[in-house]
């Protein structure tokens, strides 16, 4: 399975937009994306062994034009979320802000909850991430420091009760990426426990803001690539 390349192409696509490629020239944005993607992919390949590089299949919705349209029509912070399984993309506009937690709502009223850029919940997806403890991992990721952290994901299981899924994670900063005048550091996170193995990754800028990431919703919905189109 190839998950990393698509996520990272997306990540740099996000960077391109952040860097001011707001000419809404989707062709140009995609171009930049593929070039940067190769570069980041090779950098990640070194710190995340076992990942195979493979071409990403075409996504059903064109993320680049979706992102461009969202930036034009939405005020305030915007994210672009792409599901690895199926490749569907959607945009989220900030609907609520409570301290470090932001709730982004999609046009079809689903929600992605990010705490300082780390996925802390989803709503309306049927097999939602109900909550996640992200503080310990978040501190390392924002500081771009190596270390270990515990995370707990929580879900409603089939009989309706909330169940925790604890994992232990190792956070490892990697190389820098420079793109369109913005430089950001790659951070990888590897988690194990409760019968799952997760590989998460982030692009973090000098202020500790997560510009793009590959994060995990849960056993049923898998990974998503999240790009901060506008912060």
């Amino acid at each position: 399975m190839s998950r990393a390349p698509r996520a990272l192409i997306g990540a740099v696509l996000g960077l391109g937009l952040l860097a001011g490629c707001s000419s809404h020239d989707s062709a140009g944005v995609q171009d930049g994306g593929s070039v940067g993607g190769t570069m980041v992919k090779s950098a990640f390949g070194k710190i995340l062994p076992g990942k195979k590089a493979a071409a990403a299949p075409a996504a059903p919705s064109d993320p680049a034009s979706l992102a461009a349209a969202a930036l034009q029509s939405i005020q305030g912070p915007v994210i672009l979320v792409t599901f690895e399984a199926g490749g569907a993309s959607t945009v989220g506009a900030m609907r609520g802000e409570n301290g470090a937690m932001r709730t982004y709502q999609t046009p079809d009223a689903r929600a992605f909850i990010l705490r300082d850029g780390l996925l802390a919940g989803t709503r309306g997806l049927g097999r939602d991430l109900m909550s996640a403890d992200t503080a310990a991992a978040g501190a390392l990721i924002h500081a771009r420091k190596a270390g270990t952290a515990k995370r707990t994901y929580r879900y409603l299981d089939g009989d309706g009760a909330e169940r925790p899924l604890p994992v232990s994670c190792t956070i490892q900063p990697a190389g820098m990426v420079d793109q369109g005048g913005i430089s950001a550091q790659q951070v990888a996170e590897h988690c194990e426990g409760s019968g799952v193995t997760l590989d998460l990754s982030y692009l973090v800028d000098g202020n500790g803001t997560i510009l793009a990431s590959r994060q995990w919703i849960g056993p049923a919905l898998g990974y998503v690539a999240i790009q901060q189109l506008r912060n």
Partner: peptide, 18 residues
């Protein structure tokens, strides 16, 4: 224990305004 959608497909709730 196998509902179609354990957490439901209804729209996301309105978030808290602090």
């Amino acid at each position: 224990r196998h509902p179609v959608a354990p957490s439901g497909l209804e729209r996301a709730p309105i978030p808290v305004a602090p």
